[in-house]
């Protein structure tokens, strides 16, 4: 529905891009190189041959703002003219903004982005989700290469628990979970990927489930102080770094992949932009993002400064 409405509102631009791209954009890895010159010359909104100019947007939570600052910094370093419109709001607000040209690029998460455009999507692993994205996205939008960084639900244990039971993956919990208490948000008790999912996919059944908060202070403190031995937290939560928690791997993809990746208006793409953003994605992984986010959330540093510092040390800024 949303797709059609958006397309209706942007019929002219969509038509231009569709005709310009022809049929060669189904492979996500080839789109970046093949589609860019075509759409750039077709729409005329990006200066042909130049580095281009974009408006970087972000959702209204610290991690997304930080990612947008990283994108903005990397783009500037490649000579792209960058305007920032950060903390816009939720996906329901900024996706229309991306389609009407208010913003041109935004850091996104692969799983929820796919879900937004395709309610019936079933892909869960990083590769499957990424492969499904180009077909689900409206013709005006495109994702560039995805990073290894993911922000999603994760089963997290304390260092002591991980050492004691030699835990690295959720599957390792199966024989020992009967002695452990799991903490998480109240809905985790009934959510398909919560307690029932752990039981059906990994045969992990905990002694008890304690309903706490959504990755908030109650859950973090309970895990830190031993009221629970395992907890559902977000994989980029700064408390994971500050408390030395261990994130258990999810080899069976109980949680849909949520790789960080740039979502961009195709008409604005230039080779310089592609190069800059793919450069960021190549260097970004979950521990990096978690550490950077901790600098913003815990040390109260400016997202722009944290972004600039990281870009510099990685030769991107």
């Amino acid at each position: 529905m949303k797709q059609y409405r958006a397309l209706g509102g942007l019929a002219a631009l969509a038509l231009l891009t569709l005709t310009a791209c022809g049929g060669g954009s189904s492979n996500p890895l080839s789109t970046a190189s093949s589609a860019v010159p075509a759409s750039a010359s077709g729409s005329g909104s990006a200066p042909a041959g130049g580095a281009g100019s974009v408006t970087v947007g972000s959702a209204n939570f610290p991690e997304n703002v930080l990612l947008a600052e990283i994108y903005a910094g990397a783009l500037k370093a490649k000579g792209v003219q960058v305007t920032k419109k950060l903390s816009i709001g939720s996906r329901e607000t900024y996706i229309p903004g991306l389609q009407d040209g208010s913003i041109d690029v935004i850091p996104e998460y692969s799983g929820v982005l796919l879900q937004y455009f395709d309610k019936a999507a079933t892909a869960v692993s990083s590769d499957d989700v990424y492969a499904a994205l180009p077909k689900a996205l409206p013709a005006t939008l495109q994702v560039l290469e995805q990073s290894k960084a993911e922000d999603k639900d994760a089963i997290v244990v304390s260092k002591a628990t991980a050492d004691k039971y030699k835990l690295t993956s959720i599957a390792d919990l199966a024989p020992v979970a009967k002695d452990l208490v799991l903490g998480g948000p109240p809905e985790f008790k009934t959510r398909p990927d919560g307690v029932p999912g752990l039981a059906s996919k990994y045969s992990v059944t905990f002694k008890e489930f304690k309903a706490l908060d959504v990755g908030g202070p109650l859950t973090v403190n309970a895990l830190k102080n031993g009221q629970v031995q395992a907890a559902d937290l977000f994989s980029t939560d700064s408390s994971i770094v500050t408390n030395g928690f261990v994130v258990l791997a999810d080899p069976k993809s109980l949680y849909t992949a949520q790789n960080v990746l740039p979502l961009i208006n195709k008409a604005k793409l230039t080779p310089a932009i592609t190069e800059a953003l793919n450069g960021v994605s190549a260097k970004l992984d979950t521990p990096t993002l978690t550490t950077l986010l901790a600098k913003v959330a815990v040390d109260k540093k400016e997202p722009a400064d944290v972004a600039a510092e990281w870009l510099k040390t990685n030769g991107l800024g």
């Binding site: 903490g183 948000p185 109240p186 809905e187 008790k189 009934t190 304690k210 309903a211 706490l212 109650l218």
Partner: peptide, 21 residues
């Protein structure tokens, strides 16, 4: 009390809200 993992009738209120039940 249910907000901090305990029981009582608050369990239904807190869980019902979180589970959209």
């Amino acid at each position: 009390a249910a907000y901090v993992s305990l029981g009582g009738f608050g369990r239904y209120v807190v869980d019902g809200l979180a589970q959209r039940d």
